[in-house]
């Protein structure tokens, strides 16, 4: 019973990771690639860690698994936020079928205001 549960969980986690990596390969633009990757991989690693906890069924292993999950949940959004901001600042384009871009309008407004004040000075 325990063995079957471990098999199912590890397979599920591997499939989540496979889908995340296939998403990285397939998606057309940078931002959708970023939003596919980080979380699907986190979910897959969660499944595999639960499988490891069930396999060893030990106090120290459970603590380590919780620590790994905690570190990943805390750090991966920070990395995603930083890299998406830098990508936007360095001029990565959105997908060609995108609906709206409200950040671009605001940045243009701000730069217009700045150039106006520079002219007045």
């Amino acid at each position: 019973m325990n063995d079957i549960l471990i098999m199912i969980l590890s397979t599920l986690g591997a499939i989540f990771i496979l889908i995340a990596s296939f998403g990285v390969f397939k998606m057309p633009d940078f931002y959708s690639r970023l939003s596919v990757t980080i979380k699907a991989a986190t979910l897959g690693i969660g499944c595999i860690l639960i499988a490891a906890v069930l396999y060893f069924s030990d106090f120290s292993v459970t603590t380590k698994a919780i620590a790994i999950m905690f570190f990943l949940l805390i750090t991966s959004p920070v990395a995603g936020f930083l890299i998406s901001k830098v990508a936007y600042m360095t001029g990565t384009k959105l997908w060609k079928h995108s609906l709206m871009d409200e950040l671009k309008d605001d940045l243009e407004k701000e730069s217009n205001k700045q150039s106006k004040t520079e002219k007045e000075n």
Binding site: Y31, L34, S35, V36, I38, K39, A40, T42, L73, S76, P77, G80, F81, S84, K85, Y88, L103
Partner: peptide
Amino acid sequence: IALTPGTVVID
């Protein structure tokens, strides 16, 4: 917001 797939905070 970053952990739910499909949404990324940009700025």
